[in-house]
Design a protein around this nucleic acid. Structure first.
Lengths: 133, 133
DNA sequence: TAACACTATGTAATAATATAACATTTACAA
DNA sequence: TTGTAAATGTTATATTATTACATAGTGTTA
Protein backbone atom coordinates (compact mmCIF):
# COMPACT_ATOMS: atom_id res chain seq x y z
CA UNK A 1 0.00 0.00 0.00
CA UNK A 2 1.32 3.38 -1.01
CA UNK A 3 1.81 5.92 1.68
CA UNK A 4 -1.15 8.26 1.77
CA UNK A 5 -0.20 11.88 1.40
CA UNK A 6 -2.86 14.19 2.70
CA UNK A 7 -2.29 17.33 0.77
CA UNK A 8 -2.35 20.59 2.66
CA UNK A 9 -4.60 23.45 1.62
CA UNK A 10 -2.15 25.13 -0.75
CA UNK A 11 -0.88 21.85 -2.12
CA UNK A 12 -4.43 20.78 -2.91
CA UNK A 13 -5.34 24.04 -4.61
CA UNK A 14 -2.26 23.87 -6.79
CA UNK A 15 -2.49 20.17 -7.53
CA UNK A 16 -6.13 20.51 -8.55
CA UNK A 17 -5.24 23.27 -10.97
CA UNK A 18 -2.43 21.29 -12.57
CA UNK A 19 -4.48 18.12 -12.64
CA UNK A 20 -7.36 19.80 -14.47
CA UNK A 21 -5.05 21.40 -17.01
CA UNK A 22 -4.51 19.80 -20.38
CA UNK A 23 -1.08 21.31 -20.73
CA UNK A 24 1.98 21.81 -18.56
CA UNK A 25 1.66 24.85 -16.34
CA UNK A 26 4.38 27.28 -15.40
CA UNK A 27 4.88 28.48 -11.86
CA UNK A 28 3.86 32.07 -12.45
CA UNK A 29 0.87 31.07 -14.50
CA UNK A 30 -0.17 28.91 -11.57
CA UNK A 31 0.39 31.85 -9.25
CA UNK A 32 -1.82 34.05 -11.39
CA UNK A 33 -4.55 31.43 -11.40
CA UNK A 34 -4.63 30.84 -7.66
CA UNK A 35 -4.46 34.43 -6.48
CA UNK A 36 -8.23 34.47 -6.10
CA UNK A 37 -7.82 31.58 -3.66
CA UNK A 38 -5.52 33.54 -1.41
CA UNK A 39 -2.14 32.39 -2.64
CA UNK A 40 -0.25 35.59 -3.20
CA UNK A 41 3.46 34.92 -3.39
CA UNK A 42 5.73 32.90 -5.69
CA UNK A 43 7.22 31.10 -2.74
CA UNK A 44 3.88 29.67 -1.76
CA UNK A 45 3.58 28.19 -5.23
CA UNK A 46 7.13 26.88 -5.36
CA UNK A 47 6.82 25.27 -1.95
CA UNK A 48 3.71 23.42 -2.98
CA UNK A 49 5.28 22.43 -6.29
CA UNK A 50 8.39 21.10 -4.56
CA UNK A 51 6.31 18.96 -2.26
CA UNK A 52 4.07 17.69 -5.04
CA UNK A 53 7.11 16.75 -7.11
CA UNK A 54 8.69 15.07 -4.11
CA UNK A 55 5.67 12.85 -3.50
CA UNK A 56 5.24 12.12 -7.20
CA UNK A 57 1.85 13.79 -7.74
CA UNK A 58 3.31 16.05 -10.40
CA UNK A 59 6.42 16.11 -12.56
CA UNK A 60 8.55 18.95 -13.78
CA UNK A 61 9.19 19.13 -17.50
CA UNK A 62 12.74 20.38 -17.20
CA UNK A 63 13.16 21.63 -20.74
CA UNK A 64 10.02 23.75 -20.37
CA UNK A 65 10.13 24.80 -16.71
CA UNK A 66 6.58 23.57 -16.42
CA UNK A 67 4.62 21.08 -14.38
CA UNK A 68 2.11 18.35 -15.23
CA UNK A 69 0.14 15.95 -13.09
CA UNK A 70 1.42 12.41 -12.95
CA UNK A 71 -0.57 10.32 -15.39
CA UNK A 72 0.71 7.07 -14.04
CA UNK A 73 -0.47 5.91 -10.65
CA UNK A 74 2.56 3.68 -10.25
CA UNK A 75 5.18 6.41 -10.38
CA UNK A 76 4.38 7.83 -6.97
CA UNK A 77 7.69 8.93 -5.55
CA UNK A 78 9.56 7.03 -8.25
CA UNK A 79 11.24 9.89 -10.09
CA UNK A 80 11.88 7.69 -13.06
CA UNK A 81 10.02 9.62 -15.69
CA UNK A 82 9.68 9.81 -19.46
CA UNK A 83 7.80 12.26 -21.62
CA UNK A 84 7.13 13.02 -25.24
CA UNK A 85 7.07 16.66 -26.19
CA UNK A 86 5.71 18.04 -29.43
CA UNK A 87 8.03 20.74 -30.71
CA UNK A 88 5.22 22.35 -32.65
CA UNK A 89 2.17 22.47 -30.36
CA UNK A 90 4.06 21.81 -27.12
CA UNK A 91 1.75 18.97 -26.15
CA UNK A 92 3.39 16.83 -23.49
CA UNK A 93 2.50 13.24 -22.67
CA UNK A 94 3.89 11.07 -19.96
CA UNK A 95 5.17 7.77 -21.28
CA UNK A 96 4.50 4.77 -19.15
CA UNK A 97 6.10 1.88 -20.89
CA UNK A 98 7.26 -1.02 -18.78
CA UNK A 99 9.94 -2.12 -21.21
CA UNK A 100 11.41 1.36 -21.41
CA UNK A 101 11.45 1.86 -17.66
CA UNK A 102 12.97 -1.56 -17.10
CA UNK A 103 15.57 -0.89 -19.75
CA UNK A 104 16.55 2.43 -18.20
CA UNK A 105 16.49 1.19 -14.61
CA UNK A 106 18.76 -1.65 -15.58
CA UNK A 107 21.05 0.44 -17.70
CA UNK A 108 24.64 0.22 -16.56
CA UNK A 109 27.12 2.85 -17.61
CA UNK A 110 30.78 2.42 -18.54
CA UNK A 111 31.77 2.65 -14.87
CA UNK A 112 29.33 -0.08 -13.92
CA UNK A 113 26.90 2.33 -12.28
CA UNK A 114 23.14 1.90 -12.27
CA UNK A 115 20.65 4.69 -11.76
CA UNK A 116 17.21 4.29 -10.27
CA UNK A 117 16.26 7.87 -11.01
CA UNK A 118 16.14 9.38 -14.42
CA UNK A 119 14.28 11.86 -16.53
CA UNK A 120 13.84 11.32 -20.26
CA UNK A 121 12.35 13.84 -22.64
CA UNK A 122 11.65 12.88 -26.24
CA UNK A 123 11.18 15.64 -28.80
CA UNK A 124 9.38 15.46 -32.10
CA UNK A 125 6.05 16.14 -33.70
CA UNK A 126 2.84 14.72 -32.33
CA UNK A 127 0.49 12.88 -34.68
CA UNK A 128 -1.69 15.92 -35.23
CA UNK A 129 1.17 18.26 -36.05
CA UNK A 130 2.87 15.68 -38.23
CA UNK A 131 -0.23 15.33 -40.39
CA UNK A 132 -0.40 19.10 -40.87
CA UNK A 133 3.09 19.34 -42.33
CA UNK B 1 32.29 14.85 -43.69
CA UNK B 2 30.66 16.96 -41.01
CA UNK B 3 29.93 20.54 -41.81
CA UNK B 4 32.68 22.73 -40.47
CA UNK B 5 31.45 25.41 -38.17
CA UNK B 6 33.88 28.24 -37.88
CA UNK B 7 33.12 29.72 -34.56
CA UNK B 8 32.86 33.47 -34.29
CA UNK B 9 34.88 35.43 -31.78
CA UNK B 10 32.38 35.30 -28.92
CA UNK B 11 31.42 31.72 -29.67
CA UNK B 12 35.05 30.69 -29.51
CA UNK B 13 35.74 32.50 -26.24
CA UNK B 14 32.73 30.88 -24.62
CA UNK B 15 33.29 27.45 -26.07
CA UNK B 16 36.92 27.44 -24.93
CA UNK B 17 35.88 28.31 -21.41
CA UNK B 18 33.27 25.55 -21.25
CA UNK B 19 35.57 23.06 -22.91
CA UNK B 20 38.33 23.66 -20.38
CA UNK B 21 35.98 23.38 -17.44
CA UNK B 22 35.65 20.13 -15.56
CA UNK B 23 32.13 20.90 -14.50
CA UNK B 24 28.99 22.30 -16.10
CA UNK B 25 29.00 26.07 -16.24
CA UNK B 26 26.05 28.36 -15.73
CA UNK B 27 25.41 31.28 -18.00
CA UNK B 28 26.12 34.02 -15.50
CA UNK B 29 29.23 32.27 -14.26
CA UNK B 30 30.38 32.21 -17.88
CA UNK B 31 29.53 35.89 -18.18
CA UNK B 32 31.60 36.69 -15.11
CA UNK B 33 34.54 34.75 -16.51
CA UNK B 34 34.56 36.36 -19.94
CA UNK B 35 34.09 39.96 -18.92
CA UNK B 36 37.82 40.50 -19.12
CA UNK B 37 37.59 39.46 -22.76
CA UNK B 38 35.06 42.15 -23.57
CA UNK B 39 31.82 40.22 -23.29
CA UNK B 40 29.72 42.41 -21.08
CA UNK B 41 26.10 41.44 -21.39
CA UNK B 42 24.05 38.31 -20.67
CA UNK B 43 22.65 38.36 -24.17
CA UNK B 44 26.08 37.98 -25.69
CA UNK B 45 26.54 34.85 -23.62
CA UNK B 46 23.11 33.42 -24.35
CA UNK B 47 23.48 34.02 -28.07
CA UNK B 48 26.75 32.16 -28.16
CA UNK B 49 25.33 29.37 -26.01
CA UNK B 50 22.30 29.00 -28.28
CA UNK B 51 24.48 28.68 -31.32
CA UNK B 52 26.90 26.25 -29.68
CA UNK B 53 24.00 24.08 -28.55
CA UNK B 54 22.49 24.23 -32.03
CA UNK B 55 25.64 22.99 -33.70
CA UNK B 56 26.24 20.36 -31.04
CA UNK B 57 29.49 21.71 -29.55
CA UNK B 58 27.92 21.97 -26.12
CA UNK B 59 24.88 20.56 -24.37
CA UNK B 60 22.56 22.05 -21.82
CA UNK B 61 22.00 20.07 -18.66
CA UNK B 62 18.36 20.97 -18.30
CA UNK B 63 17.94 20.02 -14.67
CA UNK B 64 20.86 22.22 -13.72
CA UNK B 65 20.58 25.12 -16.16
CA UNK B 66 24.21 24.56 -17.00
CA UNK B 67 26.31 23.79 -20.04
CA UNK B 68 29.04 21.27 -20.80
CA UNK B 69 31.15 20.64 -23.87
CA UNK B 70 30.16 17.69 -26.01
CA UNK B 71 32.38 14.78 -25.13
CA UNK B 72 31.30 12.76 -28.08
CA UNK B 73 32.48 13.78 -31.52
CA UNK B 74 29.64 11.90 -33.15
CA UNK B 75 26.82 13.88 -31.59
CA UNK B 76 27.41 17.02 -33.61
CA UNK B 77 23.96 18.43 -34.24
CA UNK B 78 22.34 15.19 -33.11
CA UNK B 79 20.51 16.40 -30.03
CA UNK B 80 20.14 12.86 -28.79
CA UNK B 81 21.91 13.15 -25.48
CA UNK B 82 22.33 11.24 -22.26
CA UNK B 83 24.06 12.20 -19.03
CA UNK B 84 24.74 10.87 -15.59
CA UNK B 85 24.54 13.37 -12.77
CA UNK B 86 25.85 12.81 -9.28
CA UNK B 87 23.35 14.14 -6.77
CA UNK B 88 26.06 14.62 -4.20
CA UNK B 89 29.04 16.23 -5.95
CA UNK B 90 27.14 17.35 -9.06
CA UNK B 91 29.63 15.73 -11.38
CA UNK B 92 28.12 15.31 -14.83
CA UNK B 93 29.28 12.88 -17.50
CA UNK B 94 28.02 12.47 -20.98
CA UNK B 95 27.04 8.91 -21.76
CA UNK B 96 27.90 7.66 -25.20
CA UNK B 97 26.59 4.18 -25.43
CA UNK B 98 25.61 2.87 -28.81
CA UNK B 99 23.09 0.38 -27.49
CA UNK B 100 21.36 3.03 -25.41
CA UNK B 101 21.20 5.52 -28.24
CA UNK B 102 19.93 2.90 -30.64
CA UNK B 103 17.34 1.75 -28.14
CA UNK B 104 16.07 5.27 -27.61
CA UNK B 105 16.14 6.27 -31.26
CA UNK B 106 14.13 3.20 -32.11
CA UNK B 107 11.73 3.55 -29.23
CA UNK B 108 8.13 3.71 -30.39
CA UNK B 109 5.47 5.09 -28.10
CA UNK B 110 1.87 3.91 -27.67
CA UNK B 111 0.78 6.06 -30.61
CA UNK B 112 3.42 4.56 -32.87
CA UNK B 113 5.60 7.64 -32.81
CA UNK B 114 9.38 7.62 -32.97
CA UNK B 115 11.62 10.41 -31.79
CA UNK B 116 15.04 11.20 -33.15
CA UNK B 117 15.71 13.80 -30.51
CA UNK B 118 15.80 13.16 -26.82
CA UNK B 119 17.51 14.17 -23.64
CA UNK B 120 18.08 11.70 -20.84
CA UNK B 121 19.43 12.58 -17.44
CA UNK B 122 20.29 9.82 -14.97
CA UNK B 123 20.58 10.71 -11.29
CA UNK B 124 22.48 8.89 -8.60
CA UNK B 125 25.79 8.83 -6.82
CA UNK B 126 29.07 8.69 -8.67
CA UNK B 127 31.59 6.06 -7.69
CA UNK B 128 33.56 8.43 -5.48
CA UNK B 129 30.53 9.66 -3.58
CA UNK B 130 29.11 6.18 -3.23
CA UNK B 131 32.29 4.94 -1.58
CA UNK B 132 32.14 7.78 0.94
CA UNK B 133 28.69 6.86 2.24
C1' DT C 1 32.47 45.95 -57.06
C1' DA C 2 27.71 46.70 -55.62
C1' DA C 3 23.86 44.87 -53.80
C1' DC C 4 22.01 41.56 -51.02
C1' DA C 5 21.15 38.29 -47.42
C1' DC C 6 22.64 36.35 -43.45
C1' DT C 7 25.12 36.03 -39.24
C1' DA C 8 27.11 38.12 -35.45
C1' DT C 9 27.83 41.96 -32.23
C1' DG C 10 26.81 45.78 -28.78
C1' DT C 11 23.83 47.90 -25.38
C1' DA C 12 19.97 48.92 -22.37
C1' DA C 13 16.03 47.52 -20.40
C1' DT C 14 13.06 44.17 -18.66
C1' DA C 15 10.73 39.63 -18.22
C1' DA C 16 10.56 35.15 -16.25
C1' DT C 17 12.06 31.83 -12.96
C1' DA C 18 13.42 30.74 -8.33
C1' DT C 19 15.25 31.29 -3.51
C1' DA C 20 16.69 33.52 1.18
C1' DA C 21 15.36 35.07 5.50
C1' DC C 22 12.32 35.60 9.06
C1' DA C 23 7.94 35.28 11.74
C1' DT C 24 3.93 32.64 12.68
C1' DT C 25 0.59 28.87 12.61
C1' DT C 26 -1.15 24.17 12.12
C1' DA C 27 -1.09 19.07 12.52
C1' DC C 28 -0.34 15.47 15.18
C1' DA C 29 2.30 12.11 17.79
C1' DA C 30 4.62 11.27 22.37
C1' DT D 1 0.17 19.43 26.72
C1' DT D 2 4.04 19.81 25.02
C1' DG D 3 7.37 19.00 21.60
C1' DT D 4 8.35 18.76 16.84
C1' DA D 5 7.84 18.67 11.99
C1' DA D 6 5.31 20.55 8.35
C1' DA D 7 3.04 24.23 6.37
C1' DT D 8 1.94 29.10 5.86
C1' DG D 9 2.53 34.19 5.13
C1' DT D 10 5.29 38.11 3.73
C1' DT D 11 9.04 40.93 1.97
C1' DA D 12 12.93 41.21 -0.44
C1' DT D 13 16.18 39.59 -3.59
C1' DA D 14 18.83 36.35 -6.54
C1' DT D 15 19.13 33.89 -10.79
C1' DT D 16 18.01 32.82 -15.45
C1' DA D 17 16.59 34.44 -19.90
C1' DT D 18 14.53 37.48 -23.56
C1' DT D 19 12.86 41.84 -26.18
C1' DA D 20 13.96 45.59 -28.78
C1' DC D 21 16.77 48.25 -31.43
C1' DA D 22 21.08 49.79 -33.65
C1' DT D 23 25.36 48.50 -35.91
C1' DA D 24 29.02 45.72 -38.06
C1' DG D 25 31.04 41.78 -40.32
C1' DT D 26 30.93 37.76 -43.81
C1' DG D 27 30.03 35.56 -47.84
C1' DT D 28 27.42 35.15 -52.25
C1' DT D 29 26.22 36.45 -56.64
C1' DA D 30 24.72 39.62 -60.14
Amino acid sequence: MEKQHNLSKNQKIIFDLIDKSHEPLKAYSILFNVQKKGINAPLQVYRALDKLVEIGKIHKIESRNAFIACQNSSCQISKATAFSICESCEKVSEISNTKLSKYLSNFTDEAGMKYSKYNLEFFGLCKKCKSKE
